[in-house]
Design a protein around this nucleic acid. Sequence first.
DNA 1: CTCCTTTGACCTCGG
DNA 2: TCCGAGGTCAAAGGA
Length: 362
Amino acid sequence: MAFGLEAIEQLSQELAGGYNLNARLLTLLRGGPLDGRGQERAEGMSQEVSRVFMVSLFMLNSRESGRPVVDTMASPAATITEGSIDERAPAKDMRVCGGEEVTPPRKGRENEVTKKEITASPHSDGYQWRKYGQKNIQKWKFARCYYKCMFSHDRGCRAKKMVQQQNSSCGDRPMFHVTYVHEHNCQREAVSPGEATRSGHFNPQPQRAELDDDTMASCLAMVIGGAAPAGPSSSSLSPPPVGASPSDHDGGRTSSPLDVSTGLDVETSRGSPFDRLNAPAAPSSSSSLLPVEAISSSDPAVYMPAGGGLSTSTDVIAMDDIYFPCGPLFSPVAARPIGRSDDVPMDVAMFTDTTSAWTPYS
DNA sequence: CTCCTTTGACCTCGG
DNA sequence: TCCGAGGTCAAAGGA
């Protein structure tokens, strides 16, 4: 699917603007009989709402036009995947990402980029990685980390990934650019989820929901209509119960392979087209994971798209904040980092282990 | 003792 | 050809 992030953001803004406009129109209409001037204003607002619909529909219909996908928004909840990338953008093709200008990686030795994504959970991709390097990169506040497949040696797997924390974050949630280089060619045997973190790869079914067309359309329909959605099928939106829980951490060593976050709970994520933040189980005492856990459904969720026209920033906005007049459209069950220990600086990765100690440098 | 991360040095590429 | 930046290696140290 190729629904550009820029498009999502624009669409979000358009729709939120339309929503606000409609709310004003409603207020106007409820204010009593309209005089000539009020009638004019109401008509103007109505026309503007129509324009919003038109623009939104146009954007929806034109998404197949092959327009390049541009990273503009770092969603804390959704992992934005650019998909397979075989060719890199021209060197001077600056991209805007999370409000930052990002120079595409120059052509290097490894040119076989298979995927790029922006995620809050750079390590929850179902594979085990070994860090082999870290480098301070110009223009980035945070060092870039280099990972190889754990089986690069044993099985000659060439898969690598580079994880770059963004300069900006969404609230206190750091976002990461993850660039995958080379496909895994280590043979994956079916591994029980419990074993996944320890003994190898498990079937890497998609662990995150991508915003497919139906989902996006459904979402927009919800926003436009304010109707309670039937809810996208959980099969398409919720990750499979891969399980691989961080509680499977090797109890002894702290320098374990990268942790694999839990899949999302199917029940709690139903109804939202947006990926919920991964919510690793409470870490064991020996784990260095920052505790992140699912909390009660009374808390506002942090789904994206945020902004709702109220802000063009990439900050997280609770669904209740966006859609308050209608009540939450989804059944938001939040997942948020909790119990962040005070000794962990806020600009450190929201979860970390010894393999991903994000140490900002200045 | 083993395995992994850290980190500085080295290599390679592109301007 | 030089230089800066990014990517990788490998020794050292830690758990």
